[in-house]
Design a protein around this nucleic acid. Sequence first.
DNA 1: TACATACAC
DNA 2: CATGGTGTATGTA
Length: 621
Amino acid sequence: MLVSEPASPKRENTISNPESSPKHSESGTSDESSGTLRHRLLGPSIQKSGQDGVNQAAVSEIIYQASQGSKYFEHQKRKEKELTKKVESIVKQAAKVSNQELEAAEVRVDALIRQYEATRDLTQTIVHVDCDAFYASVEELDHPELKSKPFAVGKGVLCTCNYVARKFGVRSAMAEFVAKKICPELIVLRLNFPKYIEKSNAIRMILSEYDPRHCAMTLDEAYLNITEYCANMNKDREEVVSEMRRRIFETTGLTVSAGIGPNSRVAKIASNVNKPNGQCAIANDREAVMEFMCNLPVRKITGIGYVLERQLLALDVNSCGEIYRKSALLYQIFTDTTMTFLLNCYLGLGSTEVKPIDQYERKSVGCERSFRAISDMAQMKQKLQHVAEDLEKDCKRLNLAGRKLGLKLKKATFEQISRQRPMPRPINTASDFYRYGLQMLEKELPITVRLIGLRITDLVNLSHEGPMKTFLKGQRRHNDRLEDEPSTSMNIHAEFKELFDGSPDMHDDEEIGELVMIIQGSQEEDASGVIDDYRSSAKATAARDIKNEYELQHNTATPLMPVPESESLPLSTDSGDSATALVSCPICGNQVSADDQALNHHVDWCLSRGAIREAVKETFN
DNA sequence: TACATACAC
DNA sequence: CATGGTGTATGTA
């Protein structure tokens, strides 16, 4: 094992440049620093593709002028000021670190590096595929005349835009009115999820041929492990990926970009390198990986956002390779988890395991809505009620209840407040959400808000086990994650049967009725009404499923931040064979994994296809 | 545990 | 005039 010799030969182990190296030096101490404020206002996607010939300075000026004076602007200004202060304090802290401390830190960092290096696995070939301007590209298929015009998709805030619009400086996450100042002729289309889902499904179908266990992160992004496919077909990985991309284009008319590497972190970053309609492969070779990472601006790393980038820049860390150069100093400043994360990035290490999205357990479900700022209690109650109802629908659809309820408020000033309380029992009804949410809201009065949200955590999965077990589980305050009940697919099947033909057999009906009573635990509720909710038309369910589909992608799990391989979590250590056990889906009849979560997810997904077309059209515009 | 923040998409 | 919604992870008191 060579392990002992880190890659970069040089490393700053002395206080050679304690101060004043930041490139974009903050002007005074804590005054305007409008340079960084402009940077902040530019938003997160500056460094994305398609921004080549853009006059960033001019765009920045327009954004600044358009935003100036708004509540949002003032809030950003405050946050920027706070961050600048924090960054200054970090720089000061860095200057105080002694040589002795640095030397000690160096020893420890080297030990960490050896430890992480020992986890390096170069045997897998991971691919990250990323559709190019997905929503916009799908819209172009239906409206070819838009191809030559600048247009975006979204409402209020843009979700994405085509490459023509990007040339103007329009970006995703940009406020619509700001985008129109930058590009007055910009056309803005509303979102049409059914279309995107359909295309996404078509793409996933192809991905499955290369890796049946691929992980679809969102509608337009996925990870694959093509190691086995390459071996079986005896084909080169780049050839395989370019063939896959060609097939996707031929069947859907959409272009995708891909990154290929020994782990998901490298693959993800690589997929952005040749962004529109291209691919980039990093060899499964330590030197190749290290070299690729070395000159990478830290902001390109998933998990390093505006704030961490600012902090790193202030310590003269611009590229990934500089993480090593400054590692002893960084060790003194950042937490262990952040340090672990940074070192893993420097080493180009990442997850080599790809597993389907349905292997992950949801941790929360929530609903929030923005509106014109209000302070009138009657109006706030109305908004709360609405959010509570939406959350209930999601809970019913997902068959979940929560032991904790959180209230989120955004004041007119954009300052956010969150309150959280344990519930006396798992709750999943609008009336409970409203009741307890209101109690929390009342404690904040008087207040002027522009957003109200509710979220439940400490979830109880109602479809996973029998109602009585759920009840008992709810009572056991401790010992959450019980042994996974080997529940058959029977109960799930029964529930869907009920959902569809509305004729559940008596036994299940009683169980559900009982469950509802228990969960509500309240007298004032009419149980039959709630049962009706369970039977709620497939239509309503499907409508929610569109959102579900969208959410499920997000909710995924691949730990975005740190989580080094070394601490690889034994997440859902399934009893192995679940991969081989199959049952037929009650909806489509296809063979699917008998694993409860997997089956559940599949059925959900299946539902979202068939019923969507009819149901959705009327729900969405 | 509760709350605030950062981050992704 | 004017800046979203859903979910996860982490730091800190």
